[in-house]
């Protein structure tokens, strides 16, 4: 028993080490966002979406991810941005958060970026724009700025 726990601990530690301070960056409407990589399960290309009635419009429907049914959200619609036709660059980032697995449709996925904690600052207090609601913090890498997504609010707000 104790042994197993120890091993678990080790596994968890190494896992944390490889995912700590790492963010997957993606683009929506020419702006770059980041999501904590520990929330990301995988990135898949666009697949057939089945529309589900009586759902908010940003919830595009469900997809078949190797036998499991996964709901997908269009990030553009979630950010109240104009809808764009899906193309070859369009990706679905499958995120897992509190036992919910949800796909997020983004314009394109860029890279995994290392952003140390001291380079991350909170967003400005004044919530002028609607999309601020979904932003947890802002990371700075060189001259570029990444808007880091608050997965909880992104999925569950309203």
């Amino acid at each position: 028993m104790a042994m197993e726990n120890e091993q678990d601990e080790i596994v968890r530690e190494t896992k944390e080490d490889t995912t700590k301070d790492r963010y997957l960056t993606f683009e929506i409407d020419n702006e770059e966002y980041g999501v904590d990589i520990s929330n990301v399960i995988e990135i898949i290309t666009m697949s057939a979406i089945t529309w589900v009635p009586e759902t908010p419009d940003f919830l595009k429907g469900v997809i078949n991810l190797r036998g499991s049914i996964v709901p997908v959200i269009d990030a553009r619609l979630r950010f109240k941005k104009p809808e764009k036709e899906y193309d070859s660059l369009t990706c679905i980032i499958v995120v897992e958060y509190e036992n919910y697995t949800v796909g997020v449709i983004v314009d394109t996925v860029n890279e995994v970026m290392f952003i140390p904690e001291d380079k991350i600052s909170l967003p400005p207090n004044a919530k002028l724009k609607y999309q601020n609601k979904f932003i947890k913090s802002i990371g700075k890498v060189g001259k570029e700025v990444q808007l880091l997504l608050d997965v909880d609010k992104f999925l569950f707000l309203d």
């Binding site: 089945t50 589900v52 697995t101 949800v102």
Partner: peptide, 27 residues
């Protein structure tokens, strides 16, 4: 029968979903 993912609230008129032979989802 597969249950609808928990993320989607209960939809009136839909009890679940299933996968068809070609991999499509049918409600």
């Amino acid at each position: 029968v597969k249950t609808m993912p928990g993320y989607i609230n209960r939809v009136k008129g839909i009890s679940g979903c299933t996968l068809l032979g070609n991999g499509d989802i049918s409600l």
